[in-house]
């Protein structure tokens, strides 16, 4: 698998991991704010659910930009590794969840045969990531012990966050990037160029 990837594609995944690793830490503060409001009602962890999508964005952007099998999974895993390298105390835990989330994101792309990268697929991939990662947290964070209505509503919040932040926002961000011309050497940039020459012809 790694034979087909160019070095620059791997470095790109890694840089996305670094950028969003940092952004995630920033958003963490936002999450904390929400958490403090919700804490008295025992709903503190909800605060983090709202921003969960930031954490999946790397997988979806990388897949959308590079368009190769295995990219979504690897990019998410790399982002997890980066979190560890950055010395984030939550790193090792995040690495474990990253592997599982990456698989969730990859699943949807695999079902399309790694050919379809329209918005709806990206959103679906975000949703799938949310669901798979949620299953893992049911186990690891002991959420299975919670009341069913709470489990379901947490899942819904997470799905919405993933669909909007990683699917919709991730695509928007990638498209903006492609417009600057830096993605010339990657699948997304090449497609944009093809479109432009087609339109101008």
């Amino acid at each position: 698998m790694t034979k087909q990837w160019k070095l620059k594609e791997i470095v790109l995944m890694s840089i996305l991991g670094v950028v969003f690793g940092v952004i995630y830490l920033l958003f963490f503060l936002v999450g904390e704010g929400i958490r403090n409001v919700l804490a008295p009602f025992g709903l503190a962890p909800f605060g983090y659910e709202v921003i969960y999508g930031v954490w999946f964005i790397v997988a979806i952007m990388a897949a959308y930009i590079l368009r190769k099998p295995g990219v979504a999974f690897t990019a998410e895993l790399i982002a997890g590794v980066i979190e560890v390298l950055l010395g984030s105390a939550a790193g090792p835990g995040l690495l474990l969840s990253a592997a599982i989330q990456g698989a969730g994101a990859e699943l949807v792309f695999a079902l399309t045969g790694w050919k379809d990268y329209r918005l709806r697929i990206l959103v679906l991939s975000g949703i799938s990531t949310a669901v798979v990662s949620f299953a893992w947290h049911l186990y690891s964070a002991g959420m299975i012990a919670l009341a069913p209505w709470l489990i379901v509503s947490t899942l819904i919040v997470r799905i919405i966050s993933a669909a909007l932040i990683s699917g919709v926002f991730g695509k928007w961000l990638s498209d903006q990037l492609a417009r600057t011309g830096v993605l010339r050497g990657y699948a997304l940039g090449k497609e944009l160029q093809r479109k432009r020459t087609y339109e101008s012809a």
């Binding site: 790694t2 990837w5 070095l7 791997i10 995944m13 890694s14 991991g17 670094v18 980066i82 950055l86």
Partner: peptide, 17 residues
Amino acid sequence: PKITYGILAGYRFLPVF
């Protein structure tokens, strides 16, 4: 090694950002 050094190369940019 491609992945290992690819990751390290990205990580190196943290202070630069």
